[in-house]
Design a protein around this nucleic acid. Sequence first.
DNA 1: AAGAATTGCGCAATAC
DNA 2: GGTATTGCGCAATTCT
Lengths: 193, 193
Amino acid sequence: MSDSRVSSVIQEWAYPGQAHPHHVSTNHLAQMDMMPYSQPQGPARGGSDEKGAEQVMGLSYLPYNSSCLINPPSVGSTNRHQSHAHTQQDFSSFLLPTLRAPVNKRSINKNSTEYRLRRERNNVAVRKSRDKARRRVLLTQQRAQELQEENQKLQTRIGQLTQEMDTLKHILSQRRMHAAEEGPAESDIQNQI
Amino acid sequence: MSDSRVSSVIQEWAYPGQAHPHHVSTNHLAQMDMMPYSQPQGPARGGSDEKGAEQVMGLSYLPYNSSCLINPPSVGSTNRHQSHAHTQQDFSSFLLPTLRAPVNKRSINKNSTEYRLRRERNNVAVRKSRDKARRRVLLTQQRAQELQEENQKLQTRIGQLTQEMDTLKHILSQRRMHAAEEGPAESDIQNQI
DNA sequence: AAGAATTGCGCAATAC
DNA sequence: GGTATTGCGCAATTCT
């Protein structure tokens, strides 16, 4: 509920090599709801795996967290992602110094194993969280459905009871009249109801 | 419910110019729920605008839809996105011909105005759709809440009616006894209820 | 202080 | 053809 996320303003700086992949989408056919959200092992989880992408970076442009990319030549991509490519694009070395805006920030090496690990862990968490959300929504819908049905039944029940009440009251009033004719006394009905 | 999306296997082919940006995120502070999902005009919608990015491309490697990128020199970015940069990166012209794998597919120029237009329209649609989904979920939650409350009231009402019924029945049985003492007759109560 | 959980976003595939 | 949905990964934040 507290979404004060200032949103990310990512600036592409690498003048020439500025592209930064991203997407590297994978197959995600298995929606398995039972799976413990294991890391999408190589070809697992989808089918063919993803690749791609080594981006020079995407730095955010925010006051509290703008990141510059210092894409070091460490092209040794060890992750299934960004398997190939990025053979040349370190323009950053001479381009960014000029264009790069918030040069003062933490640099994140998107090729580092640590980065990939964090990303992968987050991806797992994201999938888990979304599954959870989906289930929650479904449960809420079901609950609403059930409540609606129960409501219907209760309404019906109330209708029946009300009718019975009317009948009884009618009968009682009749009785009272009869009783009055014979001998005016015992007027407890009015008081009791 | 029919999510047969085979997932996308995006292959980065541009040997050298292969990077493809992506992200270019913008500030999205305004979550405005009233806005008609207008295209994120320049600085509008967030604050600072996004830029960046022209990637050489990312082609999918699927049987039914693998796309190659034929990033033509048409670097003339006209969109607010990728405002600057992409001043030179047409490696594709001489690199892809060699490495490009599934050369037989539709080529998508990610720098084309048409592509950006489509993307932007889709982004708008996505935002709209998600807002709608969010509202739907909220409504369902509210409805469940209301139904729950109404249910409570109905239950209470039924409790009251039931009790009154019992009282009336009790009174009637008393009366009947009295009536029986005086003169056994008119036994309509049992039949009427 | 660090990792997990959330959430907005854009992309691409696909449903409509 | 175009919009609407949906899964996904990223990054910023929040929660623990």
